[in-house]
Structures are given as C-alpha cells and as structure tokens.
Design a protein around this nucleic acid. Structure first.
Lengths: 78, 78
DNA sequence: ATGTGACTGGCAGTCCGTA
DNA sequence: ATACGGACTGCCAGTCACA
C-alpha cells in the first residue's frame, strides 16, 4: 500500500471528522482547493511540510496522517 | 519546531539505533548518500515517499519518523 | 564515512475551466 | 461542494564533484 494512499485516506477521514470542506481546509492550511482534492485522490506525494501544515489545520499530529491502518503489514495474529 | 527538524532527529536516531552509516542507509533506501546527509542536517523537506522508503529501510513505521518528542505541543493530560 | 556548493529536471502546487 | 482535467511555472529535491 502506497504511502500516499495511506495519507490520502487519513487526510480525508480527519477532514471529515472535523466537518470541514476541502475548501475550508485549503484555506486554513494556505493551500489550493484543487490541491487538497488531488491529495485525497492520491495524485501527489506531499512534502512533510505540507503534511504538517494540514495536520495543524486539522489539529492532529502530523504522524497521525501517515499511520497505516492496523493490519496493513504482516498479520501476526488476529 | 519545524517538522523537518523533527524528521531529521528521528531519522538520525533511528539510523544510529540500527548501527547503519549514512551510506548504508542510502543504499538500502535507494537514495543518494549526500541526500541522507542533507536530511539529517535539516536542509530539505522530504516527500512522504522518501519518508516511507527510509522507514522501510530502517524497519520502523513511517509515522514514527514524524513523531514530535513528547512535550512539544500543548499537553492536555498525562 | 560525512559535509558542502553548484547545478538542473521534474514535480509540487496554482489557476483556469467543465460537469 | 467535489472531481477531474489541461496548462503553466518556480523552486527545491536530488545528484555530482570535490574536500
């Protein structure tokens, strides 16, 4: 699973959890509206700077946005 | 604290914890030797793709490399 | 084994549309 | 409000030569 897909999912989930539109988030983070859209569609590999700005705008930790969903790696048990 | 500084520290710490040289890590991650050096000196904002490749080469989670040291933000509880 | 300056291509990121 | 393009551009990620 590509890291940008992980990021895309987490970004979208976090944004929706905050009840923000792409436009609002873009404004808060000082980025372009269509760029947010692109990120959520896994078009680009964002820089960690962008990740951080989005994290701040969403009030989450930057590392949270890169967390793979549990069970993505080699499954041990479960 | 800039995110790239956080990344720089975590990268260096993780690399040294594994007992790898910058050269070895660069080779494993398929990156340039001097680029690793630059990252550890906080010269660049790496892309999340690079973060992930380094994380894999270091056998840690990508999100780990972006974790701010505890006590960096507003502490709520704990 | 690491730091650094100089260089350059490619892609991040913007802006404009249409649906 | 979002997806999805096309067209554009600046800048910086990433490399190389050398110390």
């Amino acid at each position: 699973m590509e890291i940008r897909e992980v990021f895309a999912r987490n970004l979208k989930a976090a944004r929706q959890a905050k009840g923000l539109s792409q436009e609002e988030l873009a404004f808060r983070a000082g980025l372009d509206r269509t760029y947010i859209s692109s990120l959520e569609r896994r078009v680009y590999n964002a820089s960690i700077d962008v990740v951080d700005r989005l994290a701040i705008a969403l009030d989450v930790e930057a590392s949270e946005l890169l967390k793979r969903p549990p069970g993505t790696k080699i499954k041990l048990l479960r």
